[in-house]
């Protein structure tokens, strides 16, 4: 408690310490010359020191650091841009290679298709030939069988006519009649 009191006296113990009697001195709002002089002197010294010496030094340091930071930023930006360019380059190459591959695949496919078509045509041709040959053979066989049937039928018909009429029918007539019947 005593220390608090002592401390408070720093604020209140003024009259005795300062040795100023009540009512002495100018009014409280009148500036005193000695205070004015000391205050003005110290402010002017401070302001001039700040303007021409302290501030430029500090500011130069700050600017240098900011410039460094800015340069670092710019370097990082440049690096990022170059990396981006590299990526773009790579992608362009990739596209080119892909196009080339596609072209090759396309060409190969076309070649293949042509070959297939060619072989298919050849095969079809051979098949048609074989079919035609087989058809001709069949036709020939059919004709042969028909001739045999014709001969046999004419024979039978001639013989039947001979038995029925007692005379041998004209072979040419029999052949014509058989022809008509078979054609029906």
């Amino acid at each position: 408690m005593l220390t608090i009191v002592n401390h408070l006296q720093g604020l209140t113990h003024l009259a005795t310490e300062a040795g100023v009697e009540a009512g002495e001195g100018p009014g409280p709002i009148v500036p005193e010359l000695k205070e004015l002089a000391w205050g003005a002197g110290s402010f002017i010294v401070f302001a001039i020191a700040m303007r021409f010496w302290l501030f430029p030094r500090l500011k130069a340091g700050m600017e240098a650091r900011y410039a460094g930071i800015r340069a670092d930023h710019e370097a990082a930006d440049a690096e990022r841009a170059s990396a981006r360019a590299e990526v773009a380059d790579y992608e362009a190459q990739l596209v080119a290679v892909k196009a080339e591959a596609a072209a090759k695949v396309d060409a190969a496919r076309q070649t293949l298709e042509a070959e297939r078509q060619e072989q298919l045509t050849a095969l079809n041709a051979r098949l048609a030939d074989e079919r035609a040959a087989a058809a001709a053979e069949t036709e020939a066989a059919k004709a042969a069988v028909r001739d045999q049937i014709h001969a046999a039928v004419a024979d039978v018909a001639g013989r039947a006519g001979e038995l029925a009429t007692g005379r041998v029918p004209d072979a040419a007539v029999v052949a014509r009649v058989v022809d008509e019947v078979m054609a029906r």
């Binding site: 209140t12 003024l14 009259a15 300062a18 100023v20 009540a22 009512g23 002495e24 001195g25 409280p28």
Partner: peptide, 12 residues
């Protein structure tokens, strides 16, 4: 309360 000068003016 002390005189106003007593709390503002200081001995040299």
């Amino acid at each position: 309360f002390p005189e106003i000068n007593a709390i503002l003016r200081w001995q040299d």
